[in-house]
Deep mutational scan, measured.
Amino acid sequence: KEQQNAFYEILHLPNLTEEQRNGFIQSLKDDPSVSKEILAEAKKLNDAQA
């Protein structure tokens, strides 16, 4: 469930490039146990690119 939530949120971050988004999603698939950390990174990058 946590992985699904992170997946959904990353898909809807407006400021990520397609490449960045795909990278985060691939990381989620590779290691779902760190989905919280991956989501935090994605949000940080999204904010930095706002």
Rank of each mutant, 00 (worst) to 15 (best):
K1P: 15
K1T: 15
K1I: 05
K1Q: 15
K1F: 15
K1R: 04
E2Q: 03
E2R: 01
E2F: 03
E2G: 06
E2L: 03
Q3E: 15
Q3G: 02
Q3M: 05
Q3R: 00
Q3T: 06
Q3A: 01
Q4S: 11
Q4W: 11
Q4I: 05
Q4F: 09
Q4D: 14
Q4P: 04
Q4E: 13
Q4T: 09
Q4R: 05
Q4K: 06
Q4H: 06
N5D: 14
N5P: 06
N5L: 10
N5R: 14
N5A: 15
N5Y: 14
A6S: 14
A6E: 08
A6H: 06
A6M: 05
A6V: 09
A6C: 05
A6T: 11
A6D: 04
A6F: 06
A6L: 13
F7G: 04
F7Q: 15
F7N: 05
F7H: 15
F7Y: 14
Y8V: 13
Y8T: 09
Y8F: 06
Y8K: 15
Y8M: 14
Y8I: 06
E9I: 07
E9L: 02
E9Q: 14
E9S: 09
E9R: 05
E9G: 06
E9C: 06
I10A: 02
I10W: 02
I10V: 10
I10P: 01
L11I: 07
L11G: 08
L11E: 13
L11N: 10
L11V: 06
L11M: 02
L11H: 12
L11Y: 05
H12T: 10
H12N: 10
H12E: 11
H12W: 10
H12K: 12
H12I: 07
L13S: 02
L13C: 02
L13G: 00
L13F: 08
L13D: 01
L13T: 02
L13N: 00
P14K: 06
P14Y: 12
P14E: 03
P14A: 02
P14M: 13
P14C: 04
N15G: 06
N15P: 00
N15T: 05
N15V: 02
N15L: 07
N15D: 11
N15K: 06
N15W: 14
N15R: 04
L16G: 00
L16V: 03
L16H: 00
L16Y: 00
L16W: 00
L16D: 00
T17Y: 06
T17W: 04
T17L: 06
T17D: 08
T17G: 04
E18I: 11
E18S: 10
E18F: 09
E18P: 10
E19G: 02
E19R: 09
E19I: 03
E19M: 11
E19H: 11
E19W: 05
Q20I: 03
Q20L: 03
Q20N: 03
Q20H: 01
Q20S: 03
Q20E: 08
R21N: 01
R21I: 10
R21W: 02
R21A: 08
R21G: 02
R21L: 08
R21D: 00
N22I: 11
N22F: 10
N22Q: 09
N22Y: 14
N22R: 10
N22L: 07
G23Q: 04
G23R: 11
G23N: 12
G23S: 08
G23I: 11
G23L: 06
G23H: 10
G23W: 10
G23P: 02
G23E: 05
F24C: 01
F24H: 01
F24T: 00
F24R: 00
F24D: 00
I25D: 01
I25W: 02
I25G: 02
I25P: 00
I25K: 05
Q26N: 08
Q26Y: 09
Q26E: 11
Q26F: 06
S27R: 14
S27N: 11
S27A: 09
S27I: 10
S27Q: 02
S27H: 13
L28S: 02
L28H: 01
L28K: 00
L28V: 11
L28T: 03
L28P: 00
L28Y: 05
L28D: 00
K29T: 14
K29R: 13
K29H: 12
K29M: 12
K29W: 13
D30A: 12
D30P: 04
D30H: 14
D30W: 10
D30I: 12
D31Q: 13
D31K: 14
D31L: 04
D31W: 12
D31F: 10
P32V: 07
P32W: 14
P32I: 12
P32Q: 05
P32E: 06
P32M: 13
S33D: 14
S33W: 14
S33E: 06
S33C: 03
S33F: 13
V34R: 12
V34M: 07
V34N: 09
V34I: 14
V34S: 14
V34K: 05
S35Q: 07
S35G: 03
S35L: 15
S35T: 15
S35Y: 15
S35K: 06
K36I: 07
K36T: 06
K36P: 11
K36S: 05
K36N: 11
K36R: 12
K36F: 09
K36Q: 08
K36Y: 07
K36A: 14
E37G: 10
E37R: 06
E37Y: 09
E37A: 07
E37M: 13
E37N: 06
E37T: 12
E37H: 11
I38R: 02
I38H: 02
I38G: 01
I38L: 05
I38Q: 04
I38W: 04
L39W: 10
L39M: 15
L39A: 13
L39K: 03
L39G: 02
A40Q: 14
A40K: 12
A40Y: 07
A40N: 13
A40I: 10
A40M: 08
E41A: 12
E41Y: 11
E41K: 08
E41Q: 10
E41G: 05
E41L: 08
E41N: 14
A42I: 02
A42P: 00
A42G: 02
A42Y: 01
A42S: 05
A42C: 02
A42H: 00
K43P: 00
K43F: 07
K43G: 06
K43N: 12
K43Q: 02
K43W: 07
K43E: 08
K44G: 11
K44M: 15
K44E: 08
K44W: 08
L45K: 04
L45F: 07
L45T: 08
L45R: 08
L45G: 02
N46T: 01
N46A: 09
N46S: 12
N46Y: 01
N46G: 03
N46W: 00
N46E: 03
N46R: 01
N46M: 03
N46V: 03
D47V: 13
D47A: 10
D47C: 05
D47P: 01
D47T: 12
D47R: 09
D47Y: 07
A48N: 12
A48M: 13
A48T: 08
A48K: 14
A48Q: 13
A48S: 09
Q49I: 14
Q49W: 08
Q49C: 02
Q49N: 09
Q49P: 05
Q49K: 03
A50T: 14
A50L: 09
A50V: 12
A50M: 11
